[in-house]
């Protein structure tokens, strides 16, 4: 029995990075916040690069609760969207080269989002990882955790529910 030779690693990386880049570039608010994403396989880490405009309390100083909530929600939606797009791109249903903001599938819509502020956000970079706890045809539940210096010391976490885009949109 003959097996197909494995794909060249550069090609795989190029395809996956391209899919992620198109998703990130499509959403203006991600650029406004200064969020980028590190990818290891299908695992994403959101990175909020510190900027003085993200401050909510200049006296401490501390990050704005709204900036933290935004970072968490952006990371949750990206995790969910990338999970969907990953399947399309890896199975060849969507060709990565043909992806553009215009041809991108619709994004999930937030139904509700609950943020738990555990400690003050320091004026430095922050990181976040999201986990899709349930993904159905119509609804998804996503948990997201954010930290700064120490992965074990979360400074915020959130759970959100999302309406999934319909496939024929």
């Amino acid at each position: 029995m003959s097996r197909r030779p494995p794909e060249p690693v550069e090609l795989i990386k190029q395809r996956r990075d391209r899919a992620l880049a198109v998703l990130v570039e499509a959403v203006p608010y991600i650029g406004f916040l200064g969020v980028s994403f590190d990818r290891r396989g299908d695992e994403l880490t959101g990175v909020l690069s510190y900027d003085p405009k993200l401050i909510g309390n200049p006296l401490l100083p501390a990050l704005h609760g709204g900036a933290i909530a935004s970072f968490l929600e952006v990371t949750a939606i990206m995790e969910l969207s990338f999970t969907l797009l990953w399947d399309d791109v890896e199975t060849g249903r969507i060709l990565a080269d043909s992806l553009s903001p215009a041809t991108l599938p619709r994004l999930p819509k937030t139904i509700d989002f609950t943020v738990d502020y555990l400690r003050s956000g320091l004026p430095r970079d922050a990181y976040a990882r999201a986990r899709v706890n349930r993904q159905g045809r119509r609804y998804a539940s996503v948990h997201v955790e954010a930290w700064q210096d120490n992965r074990q010391r979360l400074f915020a976490q959130a759970t959100g529910h999302f309406l999934m885009p319909s496939r024929d949109d």
Binding site: A26, V27, Y29, F71, I77, P101, K109, F113
Partner: peptide, 15 residues
């Protein structure tokens, strides 16, 4: 937050 509709991101409303 949604380029196809021009709707503001939920995070900005949270803020």
């Amino acid at each position: 937050g949604d380029p196809k509709t021009g709707v503001i991101h939920g995070g900005a409303v949270s803020a």
